[in-house]
Design a binder for these strands. Structure first.
Length: 220
DNA sequence: GACCAGGCACATC
DNA sequence: GATGTGCATGGT
């Protein structure tokens, strides 16, 4: 455990030195962050930006306005983000939960305990672990570590975990080794994505990866 | 043209 | 429980 902690802190320091603060999550409001979290599922962020710009231009970047849209109109706005029919449903599923359980008020979520909130988010069709945790960390400031495909690849390639480990176990690895620190978790995940985009493709492309200097890097 | 992107649900075995 | 498949646009 202590060894894992040291490895993780070492990785964090190298990434932070290499790339600097990432200023995540890009978004001007909690609601925009949540919309982005759903739209970015398996999708390049630049496509998500186009979709969010469409929603903003339509004056619909609030729970009330977005929920009031006809489903087809919502699909049209988010089309650039890909999977637009699916994601329109997922956004509406989230909004239905928000209005049914919390009167459409995001502030009300501040009263809810993190574990229970996570369970409720996961019960929404279209909100899986990464989306739920992104919402909790980046929109609701809860100390939850967000795991994604890059995090898993990096952890495997640096000998921290076995390839077959699941989301919850990988999250536990980080959360049990590090202090629950919203700002640190924020920056760590953002840095993982940053390095992942350039160096952690499915087919490894790691020649110039800043993490290569680590003694425990596994060559593929 | 192939590959990839800040996943998730569902069917099938 | 593991594995495969559909979902879709846009950049490299």
């Amino acid at each position: 455990m202590q060894k894992t902690r040291q490895q993780l802190l070492e990785i964090y320091e190298i990434l932070f030195q290499a790339f600097g603060p990432q200023h995540w999550w890009p978004g001007q409001s909690r609601f925009e962050i949540i919309v982005g979290a759903i739209l970015t599922q398996n999708t390049n962020w630049s496509n998500v930006e186009k979709a969010i710009a469409n929603i903003r231009a339509a004056g619909c970047l609030s729970p009330e306005k977005l929920y009031a849209l006809e489903p087809e109109a919502l699909e049209t706005l988010i089309r650039p983000a890909g999977y637009f029919r699916l994601k329109a449903k997922r956004l509406r599923n989230f909004l239905q939960w928000l209005f049914d359980a919390y009167q459409g008020q995001l502030e009300t979520l501040d009263e809810v305990e993190t574990r229970r909130l996570r369970e409720e988010l996961l019960a929404i069709s279209g909100v899986g672990p990464e989306t739920a945790d992104s919402i909790l960390l980046y929109a609701l400031d809860r100390p939850v570590f967000v795991v994604d495909t890059y995090t898993a690849r990096i952890a495997v390639r640096h000998g921290l975990i076995e390839p077959e480990i699941g989301y919850d176990q990988l999250q536990y690895l980080f959360e049990s080794a590090l202090e629950p620190d919203v700002q640190r978790f924020n920056e760590f995940h953002a840095l993982m994505v940053c390095i992942g985009k350039d160096f952690c493709k499915p087919k490894p492309k790691c020649a110039a990866c800043p993490l290569n200097g680590l003694p425990h890097t596994i060559q593929e």
